[in-house]
């Protein structure tokens, strides 16, 4: 991570290094399971667990792994972790496990996990890799929550969250009257549309920042030019 990236705050790192809307990693599960807030948070926590643990394990074994076979070795590590996390979810949060279904198993081929393993964990120490896994997992979870908030709110008008252990409702508020909801947001079409809007928003923020930086650079150059011209003018008048 370069120093300029370190200077940015937590939220701007979430936007700039957002794995989902910025780098387009792990789109499958983002589109598929964000119909409710419960699913989004459950999936997010599962990915955080797998990503942090896989980053830790891979940063430990990377120096011992021959380069040409590193992919199958990483795949075994990740698949083992996903199996463990899946078994734990099946035991403690059975309802959530059955709604998320194959998408828990498909964490194995989620590009974020293998991508971070190759790009970061294989060349950094344990502490840095764990931090990176946690940060990436968190920004993935935030993307899921953003998607599910929009889709659940516009699609059903109700925001609710229940304890995944025993299915007790923790809160449930109706923010939009039933006759004004847009059910299309709970369907596949809504998933694609919400994703498109959020991805465009992220890219608009980035474009805007790039433009601001360019404008500031231009203004500085203009100022310098004007100052130089001013310095020339009095000299001319004196002459």
């Amino acid at each position: 991570m370069s120093t300029t990236e370190k200077k940015r705050g937590f939220w701007s790192e979430m936007i700039y290094n957002n794995p989902v809307f910025g780098l387009y990693l792990g789109i499958c599960s983002t589109l598929a399971i964000t119909t409710t807030l419960n699913n989004a948070i459950g999936m997010g926590v599962a990915v955080i667990a797998v990503l942090t643990l896989s980053n830790i394990v891979i940063s430990l074994i990377a120096p011992l792994t021959p380069d040409e076979i590193h992919i199958p070795v990483y795949i075994v590590v990740i698949a083992t972790l996903v199996t463990v996390v899946g078994m734990l979810m099946q035991a403690y949060t059975p309802e959530l496990y059955s709604t998320l279904g194959t998408f828990i198993d498909l964490i194995v081929v989620n590009c974020i996990i293998l991508g971070r393993a190759e790009a970061y964990a294989s060349s950094h120490n344990v502490a840095e890799s764990a931090r990176d896994g946690l940060m990436m997992g968190l920004s993935y979870t935030f993307s899921l929550i953003a998607m599910s908030l929009i889709r659940q709110l516009l699609g059903t008008g109700v925001l609710e969250f229940s304890n995944p252990m025993n299915n007790q409702l923790i809160f449930s508020v109706r923010l939009i009257p039933e006759s004004f909801v847009i059910p299309v947001f709970t369907t596949q079409t809504g998933a694609f549309l919400t994703f498109a809007i959020l991805a465009a928003a992220i890219s608009a923020i980035k474009n805007n920042d790039a433009k601001k930086a360019a404008d500031a650079a231009k203004a500085r150059a203009d100022k310098e030019k004007a100052a130089a011209a001013k310095a020339v003018k009095p000299a001319k008048e004196a002459a």
């Binding site: 794995p19 910025g22 780098l23 387009y24 990693l25 590009c111 293998l114 991508g115 190759e118 790009a119 980035k206 790039a210």
Partner: peptide, 21 residues
């Protein structure tokens, strides 16, 4: 041009920066 994995053996980092800019 699917994902932004900067370490993908099929693509170079600069190319990815262009894509996901």
């Amino acid at each position: 041009h699917g994902c932004g994995i900067t370490d993908c053996s099929l693509r170079r980092t600069e190319e990815i920066r262009e894509d996901t800019k």
